[in-house]
Computed example of a mutant assay.
Amino acid sequence: GINGFEVQKQNCCWLLVTHKPCVKDDVMPALRKATGDAILKFEPLILHVQCRQLPDAQILHSVAIDSGFRNSGITVGKRGKTMLAIRSTHGLEVPLSHKGKLMVTEEYIDFLLQIANQKMEENKKRIERFYNCLQHALEKETITNSYPKKKIKDKNNSSYTRKKKRNPEAAHGKCITEENDEDCENDDDPGISITIFPKDY
Rank of each mutant, 00 (worst) to 15 (best):
17 V>H: 14
1 G>M: 09
77 G>I: 02
24 K>V: 13
37 D>Y: 06
30 A>M: 10
59 I>S: 00
93 E>I: 00
35 T>P: 02
11 N>M: 08
16 L>W: 09
88 S>Y: 04
27 V>M: 07
58 Q>H: 06
63 V>N: 04
46 I>M: 14
45 L>E: 08
20 K>G: 10
185 E>Q: 13
177 T>F: 08
169 E>N: 09
41 K>L: 08
112 L>C: 08
163 K>W: 06
151 K>V: 13
11 N>D: 12
96 L>A: 00
63 V>G: 05
57 A>W: 04
96 L>K: 00
121 E>G: 14
102 L>I: 00
76 V>P: 06
49 V>H: 11
24 K>W: 03
138 L>P: 01
160 Y>V: 03
88 S>L: 00
152 I>K: 15
43 E>Q: 15
200 D>P: 04
78 K>R: 15
158 S>F: 15
31 L>K: 05
187 D>W: 05
183 D>T: 12
189 D>W: 07
76 V>R: 14
3 N>F: 06
174 K>C: 06
89 T>I: 00
172 H>A: 01
19 H>C: 12
25 D>Y: 06
110 D>V: 00
128 E>G: 07
30 A>F: 10
13 C>P: 04
33 K>Y: 08
28 M>R: 01
43 E>S: 15
141 E>H: 10
8 Q>F: 11
9 K>N: 11
122 E>C: 12
162 R>W: 06
86 I>T: 02
176 I>H: 11
109 I>P: 02
184 C>Q: 15
31 L>S: 03
50 Q>H: 07
107 E>L: 01
57 A>C: 08
36 G>D: 08
125 K>G: 10
137 A>I: 05
201 Y>E: 09
149 K>S: 02
134 L>I: 04
173 G>C: 08
69 F>Q: 03
83 M>F: 12
171 A>I: 12
11 N>Y: 11
33 K>A: 08
35 T>L: 08
125 K>M: 14
144 T>N: 09
32 R>I: 00
64 A>L: 06
57 A>V: 07
126 R>S: 07
48 H>V: 07
103 M>D: 02
177 T>C: 04
